[in-house]
Design a protein around this nucleic acid. Structure first.
Lengths: 342, 342
DNA sequence: TCGAGCCTTGTTAGCGATAACCGGTACGCC
DNA sequence: GGCGTACCGGTTATCGCTAACAAGGCTCGA
């Protein structure tokens, strides 16, 4: 299983060990560790030397018990893979660590509903500093509501952040950009393949889609929903009514778009000549699809970072440094083109 | 940021609270909680009633301090996204939770080398029960070697598991299946686009590739390496010498294959007529590539689960229940075909 | 009937840190 | 020279739980 030796099992040094070596009380050592000002310089130096010498590291568990605070943030994750951007987790994890926190991730088992409550219980017992729920679905939100929590909880959606003040959701502006792009190409008949209805992010995108169309005085020809997968996109595009004269297909993410393009090919519809197909997220593969996919790029890693920042700020009762990510960017590739002449 | 109320901040009940209510000592309550046999039935019942009544949950931090054990497993993750199967994490996380453990994930920042050591330090301070390193690279292995650890460490590679006894690596047998498939189609001139050389999994696949060819008395025409991305695959395929008469392109994963197909298209090479292109992993999108990709499927979720099982077994000093995942499966789609006539 | 031995339960002492309190020392000031 | 006030650093209690030991009550066999 591993080629690494575990080495001899020596107990790591404690505050008391350091204190004994230096000849001071453990409390003084604690002060040095915590950076408390009122310690004479020479004492501090001797203690610091001893700490380095012994390679002393504070035991976070003990600290946590004493302070009733912890250095961990729970991250509830639901079918992370299916929704694409695990980049968001990466960003969150890195930022958390920079702040001295560890991210406890708990993947919810899609097949096991009871698991949600169990997972939340488990987290509750570890007095976490806070809880982050990524890619929330209604079920997760429900479960969280029923849990008796005394810690800050932060819901972060894949493409939008819930603000206390209901600030513009990032996902929405991305959808608008996309619709504007397509309308600019002369498209008027749109179809939408949505993400799972239970997902807040999916509903956000669907609503934004309809709103953006309405701005141009247009109405969606139709809409269908599946999960976030290419397979779902394929199925939806196979069942899509071709006779309706649809010229623009807006998929809720890039995977769905990929599946849809594949389905259209088998149905003899060529992209983008007969129909434009667009996605969202700009996963790294989209550029190499055939045809390369027009999509909207979001800075997911940054979102993860910010989510952590905000939570940390709530924990400390301060205000976060930066609270919005960069704007989404429309990435035009060749899966979208002018609307075909009637 | 959230619509959830944090609620009034009441301190959760402790062992002593339960004991006081029932009129027994805290130790007796502890026995009941731990399922210790020697407690009179009626006392046990009264305590259980009180526990339910007060909604008592043991404080895992305190337990951890008292026992110097924890219910957490650290998971070191390096550029998870880039290597594809985050499914492996999902499996691991779920299995861990089933066993009452939480997975602490620590994403290593690719841009920040020092981060590795920091991350390991942080984990060491939390007396974790064990450490899992997924998708290990040489740098991670190095860092782990230098760290003074007293806990079980388990290295798990993306497609192969390191066994103490050097058992057959799963990734290798998958590569063999693929080469056999291609040789069966009449291919004799192979090119390989490998993953990053620093990745153990990448080297494993490359070596397996050469070995499998050798079995048939064949030799690779050439090999190039990038990262795991479609972009790397594109670049490599653009630089690949077409005059060498290559008919089969073996990419280290599906993303690389996707990029390679795209590059071949721009170079006027059609897949699979002029050249067969294959990948590994069978990511959900591969089926919808154009052409659909021939690849090898691994059960990643299962690998994650098993990784946790093995680690848990080491922690307890027992032997794990199941130690091997199901065999990889060759998935033949239309990106591979008969070798073109000379 | 009595002691050996097992149950059952309580007592005490940590785990490794933090925090509140408190007694010295040194310094400045009148 | 005496006293107030910083500063410094030690003592002690505590976080919630577990483990080791102790002690009383019970059963049982001789």
């Amino acid at each position: 299983m591993t080629g690494l030796d575990d080495g001899p099992s020596v107990k790591p040094p404690t505050l008391y060990d350091v204190a004994r070596v230096v000849g001071v009380s453990h409390q003084t050592v604690s002060r040095v560790v915590k950076g408390h000002p009122n310690v004479r310089a020479d004492v501090r130096e001797r203690i610091e030397a001893a700490i380095a010498e012994l390679n002393y590291k504070p035991n976070l568990v003990a600290r946590s018990l004493a302070t009733s605070k912890s250095h961990r943030i729970g991250a509830l994750v639901y079918e992370l893979l299916a929704s694409g951007p695990s980049k968001i987790m990466e960003g969150a994890s890195i930022r958390a660590r920079e702040a001295g926190y560890l991210l406890d991730i708990v993947s919810l088992d899609p097949e096991n509903d009871g698991g949600i409550a169990d997972a939340i219980d488990l987290m509750a017992q570890s007095n976490l500093a806070g809880l982050l729920a990524f890619t929330p679905t209604d079920r997760v939100v429900q479960a969280l509501k029923h849990a008796s929590f005394t810690i800050p909880v932060s819901l972060e959606s894949e493409t939008s952040t819930w603000n206390d003040d209901g600030e513009l959701k990032m996902g929405e502006s991305g959808v608008e950009m996309m619709i504007n792009h397509l309308v600019g190409l002369g498209h008027t008949r749109f179809f939408h393949i949505a993400g799972p209805p239970g997902w807040i992010a999916a509903r956000g995108r669907s609503n934004a889609y309809e709103n953006a169309l309405a701005v141009h005085g247009l109405k969606s020809i139709g809409m269908s929903a599946g999960d976030w997968s290419a397979a779902a996109g394929y199925d939806a595009a196979m069942r899509m009514p071709l006779e309706a004269g649809i010229t623009a297909l807006v998929a809720a993410n890039d995977q769905i778009a990929l599946g849809a393009i594949s389905a259209l090919e088998t149905r003899g519809v060529s992209v983008p000549q007969d129909m434009s197909v667009v996605g969202f997220d700009d996963i790294p593969e989209s550029q190499f699809f055939r045809p390369p996919l027009t999509t909207v790029r979001f800075d997911f890693a940054d979102q993860g970072r910010i989510a952590v920042d905000r939570l940390l700020a709530r924990i400390d009762g301060t205000t976060p440094a930066v609270t919005t990510t960069g704007p989404p960017a429309l990435v035009v590739r060749s899966s979208s083109g002018p609307a075909p002449a009637k």
